[in-house]
């Protein structure tokens, strides 16, 4: 029989261990934490950052980064809101928002892959452009009172209990997980992230696949922006502010390496949940949100240290 190896176990499941620890602590701190209502509420809260984090994980797998996702989400949300407000077909408006995200990702992707611009600065510039554009379309004012039927996708609940957005998040996580594991495209991302030159010499179309990854990332961000508008029933030009950092944090907590070649969408899912638990328990206990930020930062460092400590020990 195989001997139980604590180091190996911790290496493989360190995120799970961390999650369990936090769940236990939280349930001790607040009796409300484990209640079904709170769980469903958390599911709703996780959905939007969660969907953005999926896209971020795809790009990080390549060894890239996308700082524009928050802005892209806001801009897509605004365009969809305007269309819904003008009485366009809701389905068409949603598709338009997602497509807009995809197009912005295409521009970013081409600039990085074809023109060879550095990803960090390029996506930071795209963030500025998208933020400015979402303010510009309504001269900065939000669009209130979007229709009831539009509210369903982002804020609706199945059988009045399970949030639809949460289900979408889980569904997308599963879908991208399958893509990353079972398609040639998904595997090519790991190859490119691991060694771009070797991947190219193995016949992988590096530039094309790079661009597609940015399109997917931005389209998912666009979709998240649409869901935000739907949830709030409001087109908010300042929505999703700072979400790019949470998305990166969730990916890294989930085991992704910013150097590329290593990532796990399910891990990212766990990372999003962990960050949400922290927000949630602070709210339940009633501690100022200033502490929340400090705690979040500390958790990211602890997660990384756990990852590192186990691998150092292995060497």
């Amino acid at each position: 029989m195989k001997k139980f190896n604590a180091g190996e176990f911790l290496k493989k499941y360190n995120l799970l261990v961390l999650l369990l620890v936090f769940i236990v602590i939280s349930s001790v701190l607040s009796p409300n934490f484990l209640k079904l209502n709170n769980m469903l509420n958390m599911m709703q809260q996780c959905a939007i950052p969660g969907i953005i984090a999926i896209g971020m994980t795809i790009v990080i797998t390549l060894g890239g980064i996308d700082l524009s996702v928050g802005g892209v989400a806001a801009f897509s949300g605004m365009i969809t809101s305007i269309m819904v407000g003008n009485g366009n077909n809701i389905f068409v408006a949603i598709v338009a928002g997602i497509t807009l995200g995809g197009v912005m990702g295409l521009v970013t992707g081409v600039l990085i892959a074809k023109c060879g611009l550095p990803d960090f600065i390029t996506t930071m510039a795209m963030l500025q452009i998208a933020r400015g554009a979402s303010l510009l379309v309504t001269k900065g004012s939000p669009i209130f009172g979007l229709s009831e039927s539009f509210h369903v996708i982002g804020g609706g609940k199945v059988a009045n209990t399970i949030p639809i957005a949460g289900l979408i998040w889980i569904g997308l996580t599963a879908l991208i997980f399958l893509m990353m594991k079972y398609t040639t495209y998904g595997r090519s991302l790991y190859a490119i992230g691991g060694n771009k030159e070797a991947a190219g010499l193995s016949g992988i179309k590096v530039m094309r696949n790079y661009t597609i990854a940015y399109v997917m990332c931005a389209a998912l961000a666009g979709f998240a922006g649409v869901l935000t508008a739907s949830y709030l029933s409001t087109g908010q030009p300042t929505a999703c502010n700072g979400y790019e950092l949470d998305a990166i944090a969730a990916s890294v907590i989930g085991g992704a390496s910013l150097a590329g070649g290593i990532s796990n969408v399910v891990g990212t899912f766990g990372g999003v949940v962990l960050l949400q638990i922290i927000t949630n328990i602070f709210n339940l206990v009633g501690i100022s949100s200033f502490y929340q930020q400090i705690a979040k930062g500390a958790i990211i460092i602890i997660a990384l240290l756990l990852n590192k400590a186990v691998s150092i020990k292995k060497d």
Binding site: T184, R187, S188, Y190, A191, G194, N195, E197, A198, A199, L201, S202, G203, I204, G261, I262
Partner: peptide, 21 residues
């Protein structure tokens, strides 16, 4: 090491890198 292989990926993934289709 720099052109032939992706060192941080497993043996199977390197073997199937060209012929994955």
């Amino acid at each position: 090491k720099t052109q032939g292989l992706v060192l941080l990926l497993p043996v199977w993934e390197n073997i199937t890198m060209v012929a994955l289709k």
